[in-house]
Design a protein around this nucleic acid. Structure first.
Lengths: 222, 222
DNA sequence: AAAAACCTTACGGGTTTCCGTAAGGTCTGC
DNA sequence: GCAGACCTTACGGAAACCCGTAAGGTTTTT
């Protein structure tokens, strides 16, 4: 089994749960942190001391608190870790079930397992550790596996996210056009905004822009 | 301290964490369940056996699974428990920070503590147990205490929630009027819908209906 | 180099929403 | 019983959005 595991999880009651259960698996060393910056530091420090971690288990959302952080989310942490440790095995343990975010993590950040924080999340976490330790197979919780089996990934550009965010904030199309100019996006005309919104509505099968924004919130795009 | 505690929490990894930490507090008996129906049954059964629980710690959201339930949420569980056990101390331990839902629980369901599942959630859970055991004082996590200190609670009628849900589903105002007639709400004219939406926008300080729906989702109204 | 394809923008017309006003009905207070 | 307040609805005009078409510029393909 894994010998040295780092847990990056901001909630103390979840940290306790994971540590209590993993302790039963005869894992020699289990360390943990509630902060992303400290997680990266611990990984680096361990490598320098010739006693590297062989697994990182990380949450995705880290609530802000008084401690200023350079790395503000699990996604940022995973990117930073993957850059620095290309071969380290990484398990995401998250409540997130939004298709868009899971796809990005699996396809771009090359995580080794995605475990959904469901009722049987701990049981699945253990299964995932078993599976990825012995092989290079990828593990994903059955309930969210559908996020990856879609024929087409949701490919929404940063431009579109910006549009949707402007809509959600109550901007008119004229104001959206002005905001696009402000941020040096291209194109910026109102006609472009109209056309892009029309195609987004078609893509998501939305009846109108209210529906579009509602769907986007449900999908976790904004 | 409390002698016999029931934990109603659907996630196994959180159950583990809470039990592990509470075991350190010399609480004689800690039972748990992942299902609402079973929670109510356990409370009733214990009373019948003359060995009642003196505390219930419950989550709010319980994901559905294959096991059919009559009670489908923490809110429903709390209502049912409060009806049957008026004096039982109840602590909510939840990730929920939406003002609207917290207000309803505290004002209507008379819970004894609301502990937000934050980074220090476990530490706060312990503080809450200390506080409510010794007295009838109410405990709420500092971070979400603001939800109760608002001068006016958010008082949105069922009619308004219906309106907002229709909007989020992409209905036009004409379609909303028809849906209101269908459900025997009153009033139902398009003019009434216009006027009610106008006043909701004013109430929430929304620029337009897209903004209104976005705010409503953020507040947890829909 | 030229043609074709694609992108951006403007524009006009239709539809929906927004907003205020007015009329009629109901409820409340005197 | 009546006046005043409030609610519901209709309506008209303005504003915003929706949609297709057309023109000009840029990129790609031949």
């Amino acid at each position: 089994m894994f010998q040295k595991i780092l847990i990056a999880e901001d909630m103390d009651f979840i940290n306790s749960g994971i540590r209590a259960e993993l302790a039963k698996l005869e894992i020699k060393e289990i360390d943990y942190t509630q902060y992303c910056d400290e997680a990266l530091l611990k990984l680096k420090s361990a490598r320098l001391n010739n006693a590297p971690f062989d697994l990182l288990i990380s949450d995705l959302s880290f609530n802000k608190d008084h401690t200023a952080q350079k790395i503000n989310s699990g996604e940022e942490l995973i990117k930073a870790v993957r850059k620095e440790f290309p071969d380290l095995k990484i398990v995401i343990f998250s409540v997130e079930d939004k298709m868009y975010r899971i796809q990005t993590l699996c396809n771009e950040d090359k995580i080794n397992a995605y475990v959904w924080k469901s009722r049987d999340g701990m049981r699945e976490l253990k299964k995932a550790l078993q599976k990825i330790h012995n092989s290079n197979e990828f593990y994903i919780s059955p309930n969210v596996a559908g996020a990856l089996s879609q024929n087409e990934a949701v490919e929404i550009a940063e431009y579109d996210i910006f549009l949707l965010n402007c809509l959600a904030k109550g901007y008119s199309q004229e104001e959206i056009s002005a905001a696009l100019k402000n941020k040096n996006y291209s194109p910026t005309s109102m006609s472009s905004v109209e056309k892009r919104l029309k195609s987004l509505k078609e893509y998501f099968n939305a009846n109108n822009v209210v529906h579009l924004v509602s769907i986007s919130k449900d999908l976790g795009l904004i």
